[in-house]
């Protein structure tokens, strides 16, 4: 085993030169990314730049067109219990009660016999999770009887009970009102600390990304040669910025009003979200110690 291969295995998640095209349309172009255990990565970028696509690739729901994707040193396969997911919608099973939704993972991953034997323990565990998301009294309702915020809390508990190596979330709070949203941000931070999780969190809300994450990734269009600059978009997106964020999470929403907070958001907005502003791939703002970029020849 070479040194570089050992290096890759030290990361929880390692992507190199990952690209994804749909037909002739390139969505992701040479994504390089290394994530360590315990990081809370937030991914932002303009709408349609491929955030959800990146998440689907890591999830195994779709296969990349090219590149290498490793999880704990092993190639990423089809969706499995090591990668949990919370979508903006459709995470819950409409035909199951809230309690059964949370229990489902426990039952699916066991044989019928063992899940009958462990029934009582599993139920207690599920109820504990329900309590931690403050929905214990709704255990026997169906998803359609809950509000959007409650449903997302259930979806989070449903994913957490499987103790996934990495939890992925695609705009999980996108449809919530600002108040509920803030409560959910604090909840997810508490759970992240409590369970020592690794989280990969896609959002279109910059403030949210900077507030909850320990690391922010900006996905956007870019250029490598001057002539591309004129032709503009269509080359696909890359990680154009990769910042570490304050490591110790202060579980207070007060930071949102500080000047640095606002400044960072402004900086990211101008780098990643201004359609007039394309960055040269050699000038990306890759401040995070683990960030790297490989210059494979881009045709």
């Amino acid at each position: 085993m070479t040194d570089s291969e050992k290096g890759k295995n030290n990361y929880l998640l390692y992507l190199e030169d990952v690209s994804k095209s749909y037909g002739s349309k390139t969505v992701l172009n040479d994504i390089d990314l290394a994530v360590r255990q315990g990081e809370f990565c937030t991914v932002v970028g303009p709408s349609g730049c491929g955030k959800s696509t990146l998440l689907r690739l890591i999830l195994g729901q779709e296969q990349p067109t090219g590149g290498q994707m490793l999880m704990q040193g092993k190639p990423i396969g089809f969706p499995g219990p090591d990668r949990g997911i919370v979508y903006q919608r459709y995470s819950l099973f409409p035909h199951l009660s809230i309690l059964d939704n949370i229990l489902l993972g426990k039952q699916l991953s066991r044989s019928i016999l063992r899940s009958i034997r462990n029934r009582k323990n599993d139920r207690e565990e599920a109820l504990r999770y329900l309590e931690s998301i403050q929905l214990a009294e709704h255990a026997h309702k169906y998803p359609h009887q809950l509000s959007g915020g409650m449903r997302q809390r259930v979806a989070i508990a449903q994913a957490l009970i499987m103790k996934p190596t990495i939890l992925m979330m695609d705009e999980p709070f996108g449809a919530l009102d600002p108040g509920t949203r803030e409560m959910m941000q604090i909840l997810i931070l508490e759970l992240w600390e409590e369970y020592n999780m690794t989280i990969f969190f896609v959002t279109h809300d910059l403030e949210e990304a900077v507030f909850v994450g320990t690391r922010i990734l900006v996905l956007s269009q870019f250029y490598t040669h001057e002539e591309d600059y004129v032709s503009g978009t269509g080359k696909g997106a890359r990680i154009v910025a990769d910042h570490p964020l304050h490591g110790e999470k202060a579980l207070s929403t007060k930071v949102k009003t500080t000047a640095e907070f606002g400044q960072l958001i402004q900086e990211i907005r101008s780098q990643g979200f201004d359609p007039e502003y394309l960055q040269n791939a050699r000038e990306f703002n890759l401040k995070h110690p683990d960030s790297f970029i490989t210059f494979t020849e881009i045709p």
Binding site: R83, F93, S109, M162
Partner: peptide
């Protein structure tokens, strides 16, 4: 998404059919 979700909860292919799709 619903089916991928079931897979991430450890469902086998038969599990997806009998526990998630069939009852729906």
């Amino acid at each position: 998404e619903n089916i991928v979700k079931a897979l991430t909860l450890g469902a086998s292919q038969a599990g997806v059919i009998y526990r998630v799709v069939y009852p729906q």
